[in-house]
Design a protein around this nucleic acid. Sequence first.
DNA 1: CGTCTATTTGAATGTACTCAAAAGCGGTGG
DNA 2: CCACCGCTTTTGAGTACATTCAAATAGACG
Lengths: 196, 196
Amino acid sequence: MMHHSFELILANIGRHISLTAEESSYFTQLLRPGHYARRELLLMEGAVCTDFTFIVSGCMKSYLLDQQQKEHILTFAAPDWWIADINSFITGNPGNLFIQAISETHTLALSRRNQEILLREIPKFERCFRILTERAFAASLQRNIDAMSLSALERFEKFRLQYPYLLSLLSDQEIASYIGVTPSFFSRMLKKHHLK
Amino acid sequence: MMHHSFELILANIGRHISLTAEESSYFTQLLRPGHYARRELLLMEGAVCTDFTFIVSGCMKSYLLDQQQKEHILTFAAPDWWIADINSFITGNPGNLFIQAISETHTLALSRRNQEILLREIPKFERCFRILTERAFAASLQRNIDAMSLSALERFEKFRLQYPYLLSLLSDQEIASYIGVTPSFFSRMLKKHHLK
DNA sequence: CGTCTATTTGAATGTACTCAAAAGCGGTGG
DNA sequence: CCACCGCTTTTGAGTACATTCAAATAGACG
């Protein structure tokens, strides 16, 4: 099971900085384990996102509802990924994103307060979070590029090649929402191109 | 003129960390001033982006050309902003972005090598770059949200409210490319809504 | 088995695109 | 100063991609 063992998150951090045993345990002490059932919300629109959340097992999504209450999925987070409403997290203002478990999910949350303590006590974590943020930023820019320069079909092809693991966990509506089309168009597209 | 005085960039940094006079001068020593004529390229597709570039005056854009050689603008950078092909910068691999001056532009470039030196010598810059990256990341996510949930008209309205300064510097084609429509559609849209 | 939700399909529509041509605009040279 | 060139913007006509709304079908689960 090992849901709340810290191997995965320490390996994640260890890709960017080296920690001593004491530093590792200082870090893990600041984490708050969490457990979410399928469809359970971690964050609601209008709430302040106080945590940077690491996915140990399961899967989550962040999304917003537009004026017509249509869901638009911004990110998925599989195990070994982080999820948050970054804008709310860094400003401390209420956010406009929902974060929800897609399947049963175990998490480790680092609160803003604990992040500040961590950065003060072990400054090399600044480097780690800088690198994590840079990577997430690069991925977000690539998504902007794809949205502008690829067709819906190309966006889907890219998605399934890039995240085959997610494909099996997600409903068609969720994939459609992520690539930016309606479920009915997505269904027609799959049929037309014999992708199902 | 003061194009290569460091007031602007020191104020930019000073919003996130405090520097002593010695630290400030150590930092500015690592910067390479640059000057670009209108339409001059700072970076070409296929090249490695070795610099994080701060805009002192003028304006730049980053864009890519798709399979049909159509230009898609990813970001604009006005004075007091940074620009780079982040993906290429952090991986060291050749990038797929162009970076070009829209008007005559004065810059201060921090090379990857010098950034490493800076981070080693004055570790609190880790914090500064983490924060800069977080903000740029949040802006990029917001753009993804807007692309998914707003109409072309709404994206334009938001753009003109958010960046009135840029409006006067840019051609219609550039604005159209940024909001993700063709110049002809953009022209029709402006006319239809009496926005010109 | 019945209920609930997800997916598919149909028909009509809208948003944005392509290609091509025309008009407007800015600079340059005769 | 005007004529011309090149580039941007506008317009026209036809089209493609994607949407809406509603209904039908299929799956999942108690």
